[in-house]
Simulated assay, not measured.
Amino acid sequence: MSVIAVYSTKGGVGKTTLSVDLAWRSAVLGGHKTLLWDLDVQGGAGYLLGEDEQPRLRAAGVFHREGRPDQLICETAYPNLSLLSADDSLRSLQLHLARIGQKRRLANLTNMLRGRYSRIILDCPPLLGEVSDQIIAAADVLIVPLPVSPLSFRALDTLRRELKREHGRHPPLLPVLSMYDGRRKAHRDLREGEMAPYPAIPWSSAIEQTAFRRAPIGTFAPHAEPAQALDRLWRVIEAKVQGARAA
C-alpha cells in the first residue's frame, strides 16, 4: 500500500481537483483499489465526485481512540474508487490531535486499511501544525501544487525548511505547477527557468468544468491537454511510489 498526500500551505491552488483526478486515475486507469480520504473541512473531494453531502458530523471521530475509518468509507460511482468524506467536525481536528498526543495516529489508521487498498490519496487541508505533521508521517510521497509565481519558491523553501527541522527524514516531495497559462510571458519565463524541472498542469476551461460537471476531466475530456498532462503526472507519481518502496 502507498499513501500519496496532496498538500499545500495555501488554498486555491487546485489541490482538491488534483487529488480527485489522481485518485480516479489510480482506480480506473491504474486498476488499483484506491481510497480518496478528504481531510479538508470544505469537503470538496466528495463534491467533485458527485457525492451527496453527509448530514452527520463524524469525520473527526475516526481519529478518536476507538475510531475506525472503514465505518465511514463509501463506494463511489467509479470502479475501485472509495471515498472517506470530510465534514465540519474536522474543524477541531488540529486541537484534538494535539490533545491526544498520538503523533502517528493517521499513519496507524492508514495501516489499518493496508489489506483493503493499494493506494490511499489524502486531500489535505492548507495547514502547518499537528495535522500536517500527521500527514507527513503517514505519506510515502508528498505532492505539492504550486501556482506559477515567484512567491511559490518562497512557500516551497519554507515547507522544505519546516520538513527538515521538524521531521529530518521525510517523504519525497514532488512540486507540481498548477494553472499554468502558456499564453502569459511571465508563466513561460518561470516555466522555462527555475520551474523547468516540475510537472505542469495547464489552465483550461476543461479543468474548470470538473467543478460544474462534478466529475474528473478524464471522464469527459480525456484527450484535452490538461488531461494528458495529468496522465503524465500520474505516471511520474507511480514511479516515485515504486522508488519510495525500494528505498
Rank of each mutant, 00 (worst) to 15 (best):
P171T: 01
E225P: 12
G193E: 09
V148Y: 11
E166H: 02
L142T: 00
V176N: 02
H223P: 04
F153G: 10
L233A: 11
D133P: 06
E194L: 15
L146Y: 03
E130G: 02
R169L: 08
D123K: 01
S152I: 05
S118H: 06
E194P: 14
A139D: 05
L190M: 14
A211L: 05
L146W: 03
D140P: 11
P125L: 00
L177T: 03
L177F: 05
H223Y: 06
I201E: 13
V141K: 07
F212L: 15
A138R: 08
D231T: 14
L151C: 04
R160C: 07
G193C: 10
I120C: 08
V176R: 05
A155G: 14
T158A: 11
F212K: 12
Y198G: 08
R235D: 10
D189I: 00
R213C: 04
I217N: 10
S132E: 09
C124P: 07
V148S: 12
R165E: 08
W234P: 09
P216W: 01
R184S: 14
D181P: 07
L151E: 13
W234M: 13
A138L: 06
A239Q: 14
K164W: 00
D189H: 07
D189T: 05
S204H: 14
F212S: 14
R169Y: 03
L159N: 08
S178N: 13
P171C: 03
R213H: 08
K164L: 08
S178M: 11
D189Y: 02
H223I: 01
L128Y: 01
S132L: 06
M179P: 07
L163C: 04
P216Q: 04
I135L: 10
R161W: 00
P171E: 10
A239T: 10
I201Q: 13
L233Y: 06
Q242K: 12
P171V: 03
L174E: 06
E238P: 11
